[in-house]
């Protein structure tokens, strides 16, 4: 899954959540590419936290690709281990 938005936040979270659900259900390996993303907000990090937690329970892996330092720091601040 490639995220196209530079600023990825509450405006996009519902659609992102829906897409993530679909993709997770399909059973394929979940790779989220953050190449264009300069900033995320808490709503996005919460969805990511929840999907990572579910994947861990299910014995699956969610991979984050091309994370910028800024976004990485944001995730760390929200307690998301990456």
């Amino acid at each position: 899954m490639i995220i196209e938005e530079e600023i990825f936040g509450i405006k996009h979270v519902r659609k992102f959540y829906g897409n993530l659900k679909e993709e997770y259900k399909s059973g394929i390996e979940l790779i989220i590419d953050f190449k264009s993303v300069k900033r995320v907000d808490l709503s996005i990090v919460q969805v990511l936290t929840a999907v990572v937690r579910m994947a861990r329970k299910d014995g699956r892996v969610v991979k984050f690709k091309s994370l910028s330092e800024d976004v990485k720091n944001q995730m760390i601040l929200c307690g998301l281990k990456i």
Partner: peptide, 24 residues
């Protein structure tokens, strides 16, 4: 930041989350 405890107890399971609400 010396210590950062993020409380995720209120964060629902992925299937039941309302993505537009704040839980952390």
């Amino acid at each position: 930041i010396i210590k950062n405890i993020v409380d995720k107890q209120n964060l629902p399971e992925f299937e039941g989350i309302d993505p537009e609400k704040c839980y952390l």
